[in-house]
């Protein structure tokens, strides 16, 4: 498997994703500058976290117009994998790859901490190595991760199993108490209907080495490698 990490102006988890895939997973990885109109021949595109365009206007709202996004769209339409992490997820929402929108955290402040995620769908290319309902300990770091969608969209997401991760307790309860940001129904990550574009607020690249406290994020990369 080969991967590309897109670099927008203001991306700041680009080198972290590169490190997790290249140094830890031993995957061939290339950076792609957002002004590029084409992507190298890769299987996976990563839209990394950060503050693309300083999050001006709305998170991800300007990055969706970067030239590279057209190439990312073609890549996704061809059925190959795209993962948007944190700001990357926000960009996927703004660009219409995934439904819904992000609001400010209910606390109104930025939150950086480890959370527990419950795997809601382990039949995707990103979660195939996970057990049903498997719990993952992965950090979040965002000010706007409060996922919102209307009732119709929510029903569609539920009915077609597009909710991939929910915030949970260490024992798997998905109650309000364990919802760090006010996200609708504790949603932490969703996938498109076709099953090849995943958006998630937590950072698997920050949980890919034992020295960094958790290796649960590796399971997502391992699922992709197959």
């Amino acid at each position: 498997m080969k991967a590309a990490v897109v670099v927008f102006p203001g991306s700041n988890c680009d080198t972290d994703c590169f490190h997790a895939l290249f140094d830890v997973m031993k995957m061939p990885v290339k950076f792609v500058w957002h002004k590029e109109g084409t992507l190298p021949d890769v299987d996976l595109v990563v839209l990394p976290g950060g503050f693309s365009y300083g999050d001006y206007l709305r998170t991800g709202a300007i990055a969706r117009f970067s030239p590279v996004m057209e190439a990312v769209r073609q890549h996704a339409e061809s059925g190959r994998a795209v993962i948007g992490i944190c700001n990357g997820f926000q960009i996927l929402l703004e660009a219409g790859f995934l439904p819904g929108a992000m609001l400010r955290n209910k606390t109104l402040s930025f939150i950086c901490t480890h959370v527990w995620l419950r795997t809601e769908n382990n039949a995707t290319i990103f979660t195939g190595k996970l057990n049903p309902k498997e719990l993952l300990r992965i950090p979040i770091a965002h000010g706007e991760g409060n996922y919102y969608c209307d009732d119709k969209t929510f029903k569609r997401l539920e009915d077609s199993n597009q909710i991939v991760f929910r915030y949970a307790s260490e024992s798997g309860e998905t109650t309000d108490e364990f919802n760090p940001n006010g996200s609708r129904d504790n949603i932490a990550g969703i996938i498109n209907a076709k099953g090849n574009v995943l958006g998630m607020m937590p950072h698997p690249e920050r949980a890919s080495e034992s020295m960094l406290d958790s290796v649960d994020g590796r399971k997502i990369w391992e699922s992709l490698v197959g």
Partner: peptide, 25 residues
């Protein structure tokens, strides 16, 4: 928790320890 203390994936000791510690990749 309002500071991103993990970005760059080098933070080995989080705030709260006697000293903060980062690795050099």
């Amino acid at each position: 928790t309002q500071y991103d203390h993990m970005v760059r994936t080098d933070t080995v000791f989080y705030p709260g320890h006697d000293a903060s510690l980062i690795r050099i990749k």
